[in-house]
Amino acid sequence: MNFLFFEGISQNPNSYLILAIIIFCAGIFTVLTRKNIIGILLGIELMLNAGALNFIAFSFFRHESADYSGHVFAIFVIVLAAAEAVVALAILLAVYQQRRSVSTDDISDLKG
């Protein structure tokens, strides 16, 4: 197991990748188990951050010379996450005004 690839934990890419996996798994767990829609949103934010962390890590470790595509992608991820949060919350508030609830159990009209 080449877990400690480089000297020093903070300079080891795998430590960042494993950390990202942990955050991502936490996000998945949150998404799967929450009934509150805002809880699901929180999980999604976690997952997105894990992805952005991966982007930054690869940008840092995968290039000998400077290349900031990973940074740009991370910024896009952040911006899109913000956008998604705005839309999701707008929808959520509209739903809440109609149904007085944000539980997924109560928003299940769309049945097959």
């Binding site: 903070s10 930054i56 940008s59 840092f60 991370a74 952040i78 996450a81 913000a82 705005v86």
Partner: peptide, 27 residues
């Protein structure tokens, strides 16, 4: 903070500005 370890201070500041100042407030 991890971003700063990865030499991504701009992204780190963006993260705080947008997530803390925007998304979290919204949430």
């Amino acid at each position: 903070g991890l971003y700063i370890f990865l030499s991504a201070d701009f992204v780190a500041v963006s993260q705080i500005l947008i997530y803390v100042g925007g998304v979290m407030v919204l949430l």
